[in-house]
């Protein structure tokens, strides 16, 4: 009985309220913000590595050259410059020559500019330099460059004639990598070094 009465009342209320047009209206206001965003570019290059190509003799045991890393992109970016060396294949034999890298002391230090590399006396390595025997042991050179910026590293290679045999060679690859998220920039350059006991020397060419 009560249930039936409640149902009747509910039905009547629904009909009345729906017919009475009860509702809710809200206002909205809008404003707009506009702008423009632009995406940069990533590009990192290296120069000066070919200055380390050398034909060593018992009299010429050292070569120094600046390696310059330049950010040619439009956003700041980190970089890593590393060296790896391996003996070159002897001509005609297909076999590798002796590894000159094992007889090479490599030193790297940062410099303000390329010209300053030559000011360091031969056989010396300034404070802050990194030295190791062989090209593969040199830790990567790290840094971050703003767009258009450059980083100069002086690289010096000194061989020990007592540990090198005539005909020993090494081909060194300088790898420059830079990455931001999924973007990457890679640059590689090769140079060669050799040792002979000839009195007349000329830069080794590979």
């Amino acid at each position: 009985m009560i249930k039936r009465m409640s149902g009747t009342l509910a039905l009547v209320l629904v009909l009345v309220l729906s017919g009475a047009g009860i509702g809710h209206a809200y206002w909205s206001a809008h404003g707009e913000l506009t702008g423009r965003v632009a995406v940069g570019t990533l590009s990192m290059t290296q120069t000066g590595v070919d200055g380390l190509a050398a034909a060593f003799t018992t009299d010429v045991t050292e070569v120094t050259a600046p390696v310059v890393v330049t950010n040619d992109g439009t956003v700041s970016a980190p970089f890593a410059l590393s060296f790896t060396g391996a003996p070159a294949a002897a001509e005609g034999t297909g076999q590798s020559s002796g590894d000159l890298g094992a007889a090479t002391l490599v030193s790297v230090w940062p410099a303000a500019d390329a010209a300053s590399c030559a000011s360091v006396p031969a056989g010396d390595a300034p404070d802050g330099s990194t030295s190791s025997t062989g090209w593969n042991a040199i830790p990567p050179l790290l840094g971050t460059l703003e767009p258009g910026g450059s980083a100069v590293h002086c690289v010096r290679a000194v061989i020990d004639p007592a540990r090198a045999a005539p005909g020993d060679t090494v081909v060194v690859t300088s790898s420059l990598t830079s990455g931001i998220g999924s973007w990457s920039s890679t640059s590689t350059a090769d140079f060669g070094q050799s040792f002979s006991d000839d009195a007349i020397v000329s830069p080794h060419s590979f």
């Binding site: 206002w27 909205s28 965003v37 995406v39 998220g181």
Partner: peptide
């Protein structure tokens, strides 16, 4: 985003942001 491909380098976009106020 970190996975943006290199192909979007050197591009740009104009955006529009609507600010809405509801009573």
């Amino acid at each position: 985003t970190a996975d943006a491909p290199a192909s979007v380098q050197a591009t740009s976009a104009v955006f529009s942001m609507i600010v809405t106020g509801d009573q």
